[in-house]
Write a protein that binds this DNA or RNA. Sequence first.
RNA 1: GUCCCCAUCGUCUAGAGGCCUAGGACACCUCCCUUUCACGGAGGCGACCGGGGUUCGAAUCCCCGUGGGGACGCCA
Length: 464
Amino acid sequence: MTVRTRFAPSPTGFLHIGGARTALFSWAYARKFKGQFILRIEDTDVARSTPEAVQAILDGMSWLGLDWNEGPFYQMQRMDRYKEIIQKMLTEGHAYLCYSSKEELDALRERQMQDGIKPRYDGRWRPEDGKVFPEVPVGVQPVIRFKNPKAGLVEWDDLVKGHIAISNEELDDLIIARGDGTPTYNFCVVVDDWEMGITQVIRGDDHVNNTPRQINMLKALGATIPQYAHLSMILGDDGQKLSKRHGAVSVMQYNEDGYLPEAILNYLARLGWSHGDDEIFNMKQFCEWFDLDHITPSAAQFNTEKLNWINAHYIKQADLNALAIDINKRLMAKAIKTDGGPALNGVISLYRDRANTLNDLATSIEYFYSQPIADAAAVEKHLPNEILPIIKTMLAELSSTDWTAEAIHGVIEQTVLKNALKFPKVAMPLRVMVTGGAQSPSIDAVMQLLGKEETLKRMSVFCA
RNA sequence: GUCCCCAUCGUCUAGAGGCCUAGGACACCUCCCUUUCACGGAGGCGACCGGGGUUCGAAUCCCCGUGGGGACGCCA
């Protein structure tokens, strides 16, 4: 049987890191088995779903390069089909009308909590032999409930967590259609997973408790039951749960922050899944290696430090021209123009090994394209007055030097020799004058790239 | 409260009864390289939640405890 997996986000917000990993794993599983990956938008919560969120999810997926074979399917467009099936369940006795009001149910729930039992619907409108029902209240739009089996065990072999069994006594008759007739999540998932022929449902841990209900509905419908794989959640950097209020950010934020999609993907792949000691691998490799057997059942804490390390790795590997285009954009966003300045490719080559993010990289090379503001502490430390005469002499010598790194290096070395100094005594003042700070790659390489005119100009400012 | 799940270095993880005096990676520390800072290289620090079993032998299997998490919506 062909593997068919799906990613089924609800468009109530952006694609965050947890959703991205779920999508990645579902995608990789389908790719590994040459199957299909399906994207389905679960937008039945009309009040909270927005077209902006749909777009944000699509953007996130495409930035990461997670492509799908079918869809996106929108559940709101499948209303007719859901209603048809609900009608069928009603006729077949798998579902029934319930006239309990929300207030009534809230009160029930509260009482049950107080009594220390699991809150659940008590089945007051559930049709049973010889049962006498209360009078049907007027003006109440009934909801439709699934008639869950009362006894027995629901069990499945979770591909991540192993065998799980839950007693039907723990389950109540869940609502499958609201008062206004729109079907609810648990029902739509069941119908869609069934009709879309999903073979492996790979989703978040928070759905474990929905699984037995879904299996019961699948059984009532005579549907094939897919395999389930429940992924543990991703905790924030601080070990706390990610939520809208705390730490959950859009994957697109990582784009803005200067992370490469390859790095995010590679990092996410290793969060909760492993292949021996392998740390760095591309998506082609990942799709070959990926399996559900090596997924950790416990929650994983997000670690930005490690992400940074992986990102730095991919920056070193990245195509130089692509890097230049990206960095140029980031500089432009800060109103720094690179045309007319030193060639970006050269500058980036000099700096790419030192950056954790593209933003770091962009920031570190800003001084090539705009006047640096000299760091006062660095000036104080590396530019003592007694060095100025030496700098002046060097300035004169440099103005008649061929502008190659070797020639520049030669001038510095001669100066060092003539004045019986250590190399840094001359290199550091130059670094501060030219870059504005005390850290940079080889100063001769920097000066060469910056250009003769600009370098001498920056030096003379300090010699005035 | 009830049900379900989880538990190896600070973090991500390897580990499917002997290969484990527990391996790798990030971070941290030391040294080397060096023109500063990085990069890179070489070392180092650092963990099987506790208690009972099972077994010749347990990080690995079982039970209990403890701790953490999730679910209990006319949300998904």
